[in-house]
């Protein structure tokens, strides 16, 4: 009796438990198994990662090792199930990945996009086979932000977290984001402080839409900030303000606002506090001691 005499349903059940590396071995045994492997469900993974090799810069040893093996034009797809790595973006390599499963599901999938359109297209092609509960994006440019928005449109029921480092544009598009589990916008520091940051109206829109919000720099004046405090309690911790919204919104949530020293200085000036202030001076209810 050989394995192919078992009903397809039974073989697929076995294949669900077979690791990716072993799937490669199985598909090379005969045509029938090659087909069954390609049509099988890849199973469920709690976590997965798709990221381009360049994002491995932080880990020079790993980066060197992988680059030596596959060259820089590769897309590395990680799953936490061993490494499901080094998917070469040549046609053959990509087709190979397509032949390892028909569907695969992830609890959380982290995608680190690059600015390359061809890599993006390949990721989209791959994602067609994915079912994902939560998407996590690590973005570093406006192009990547646009790509992430498009991906989110393909997964309307999927929860997501987005971390965008070095934001300096796309500001209007932030309003188009569906409600996120977590949105983190870290602005690129510029010498001219006034040119980066989130305008107040957009800050309020993001505050009401996203469950957890971290913004590195919002353009708020002291009056705007007081408005936030009217619906919030806060505590001061180093340079960060943590604001727990206690309004009618019943969601458990966290808002983290990292303010530039310039903004804080502006607020102080709003209350008439400057280097010339002396003890005993006051501005409205604020007294300088």
């Amino acid at each position: 009796m050989n394995i192919l005499s078992l009903p397809d349903l039974v073989i697929r059940e076995i294949l669900k438990r077979v690791e990716f590396k072993d799937r490669l071995g199985l598909r090379a045994t005969c045509r029938a198994l090659e087909k069954l492997v390609a049509e099988s469900n890849g199973g469920h993974f709690n976590n997965g990662r798709i990221f381009h090799l360049n994002s491995l810069k932080a880990n020079p040893y790993k980066s060197r090792r992988l680059k030596k093996k596959i060259g820089t034009s590769s897309l590395t797809v990680y799953s936490t199930h061993g490494t499901f790595t080094d998917i070469n973006l040549t046609v053959g390599g990509f087709q190979l990945l397509q032949r390892l499963f028909s569907r695969i599901s992830f609890g959380e999938l982290e995608i680190s996009l690059s600015d390359s359109i061809s890599i993006y297209m390949s990721i989209c092609e791959l994602l067609k086979k994915f079912s994902i509960r939560t998407l996590n994006f690590e973005l570093k440019s406006s192009i990547q932000f646009e790509m992430a928005l498009d991906i989110l449109k393909s997964f309307p029921d999927c929860k997501y977290r987005m971390h965008f480092y070095g934001v300096h544009s796309s500001i209007d598009k932030f309003g188009a984001l569906p409600p996120a589990e977590e949105l983190k916008l870290i602005f690129k520091h510029k010498n001219d402080q006034g040119s980066s940051g989130i305008p107040t109206h957009l800050f309020y829109a993001l505050l009401s839409s996203h469950r957890n919000l971290c913004i590195s720099d919002a353009i708020l004046n002291s009056r705007d900030f007081k408005k936030i405090l009217e619906v919030a309690s806060y505590c001061y911790d180093l340079s960060d303000f943590f604001i727990e919204i206690i309004s009618a919104d019943v969601r458990g949530r966290k808002v983290k606002l990292l303010l530039a020293p310039q903004t804080i200085a502006n607020w102080l000036r709003d209350y008439g506090i400057s280097t010339e202030v002396e003890e005993g001076d006051h501005y409205g209810e604020v007294r300088w001691t």
Binding site: R17, V18, A28, C30
Partner: peptide, 23 residues
């Protein structure tokens, strides 16, 4: 069975499962 497949090369799998390779 999945554990039996683990780490084996294609010809070893074919032998273990009595598969005639038609490739």
């Amino acid at each position: 069975i999945a554990n039996m497949i683990h780490g084996k090369k294609s010809d070893e799998i074919a032998e273990m499962f009595n598969i005639h390779c038609d490739l």
